[in-house]
């Protein structure tokens, strides 16, 4: 059974010039312990669709879906209280800017202990012990000392490790990572991606990776969804997608990679849409 099953998800925003559809009829399926990459450029609705699942969109957004099930439970009909038991415990999320995702006024130790006390019902001492364990598991050196650090005292890579530790603190079934390495240097990016895949493998979590970077997709995903302007262009397992991309937009994205350039000019997306007559 699919861990998360979504059918015909639509998100529209009320704007001064009328409603704007950011996500237009997206279907998403993710199996337990699968890595799904959602790829797209800005405005493709890749983040918005996952924020809709998490219930993190502002009031100006209208979310509709025919089906939204997590682990067989219908998320559309459940009460807010039931939903909150899933969100943040069984489904967790990390974001692009790790330093901005943490509260600057509290130590990182306090922030992870808070999650453990509220979501896992631990005592203060138990939460502290577990937090140190988690910091160690995500590769933070001197975890006990780092508990007393404020976010600004840590590097971007270390803050993202703290975010990951908080996200896996409740042993979630599904982790959604929204551009988790975009703000980081490549050598740090590699460490964080390796960490995410390692945790995914050992905990058997589902992992949804939202990214714009085809290289990241190639090195992490089992299955890939390509989105463009709120619609799904193509869905395939990672090898077929890179070997034989079916949709012109996917072909365009792959050929716009500077590393694959042949000759002097890079093909652009409009070249491909012209070819496809769209």
């Amino acid at each position: 059974m699919a861990l998360l099953k979504i059918r015909n998800l639509t998100v529209s925003f009320a704007t001064s010039t009328g409603p704007f559809k950011a996500v237009d009829g997206i279907d998403v399926d993710i199996e337990p312990s699968e890595v799904l990459a959602i790829v797209g450029e800005s405005g493709s609705g890749k983040s918005v669709s996952m924020l809709a699942v998490m219930g993190l969109l502002p009031d100006t957004a209208t979310v509709t879906a025919d089906v939204m099930e997590f682990d067989g439970r219908d998320m559309l009909s459940m009460s807010g209280a039931e939903r909150r038991r899933i969100i943040g415990r069984e489904i967790t999320m990390i974001f692009q800017e790790p330093i901005a995702s943490l509260n600057p006024s509290f130590t990182v130790g306090f922030q992870i202990e808070e999650v453990l006390r509220i979501n896992a019902g631990m005592s203060k001492a138990a939460a502290r012990a577990r937090a140190i364990e988690l910091f160690d598991a995500v590769g933070i050196p001197e975890p006990a000392e780092k508990m007393r650090s404020y976010p600004h005292q840590l590097s971007g890579g270390q803050c993202q490790r703290v975010m990951i530790a908080i996200a896996i603190a409740t042993n979630p079934r599904l982790l959604i990572a929204d551009e988790p390495t975009t703000a980081l240097d490549v050598t740090i990016q590699k460490q964080i991606l390796d960490l995410l895949l390692d945790l995914q493998e050992t905990h058997g979590m589902g992992l949804i990776l939202i990214t714009h970077d085809m290289g990241v997709v190639a090195e992490t995903a089992d299955r890939v969804v390509v989105q463009f302007k709120g619609q799904k262009m193509e869905e395939a397992d990672v090898l077929s997608l890179f070997e034989a991309p079916q949709h012109p937009y996917t072909r365009a994205l792959l050929s716009a990679l500077p590393e694959l350039a042949t000759g002097d000019r890079l093909p652009t997306v409009s070249d491909y849409f012209a070819e496809a007559g769209q």
Binding site: Q189, A218, D237
Partner: peptide
């Protein structure tokens, strides 16, 4: 270079 993600088909095949 080692840290830069690459989209080489053979590398993907090996990883899968």
């Amino acid at each position: 270079f080692a840290a830069t993600p690459i989209t080489d088909i053979e590398a993907i095949r090996a990883r899968v």
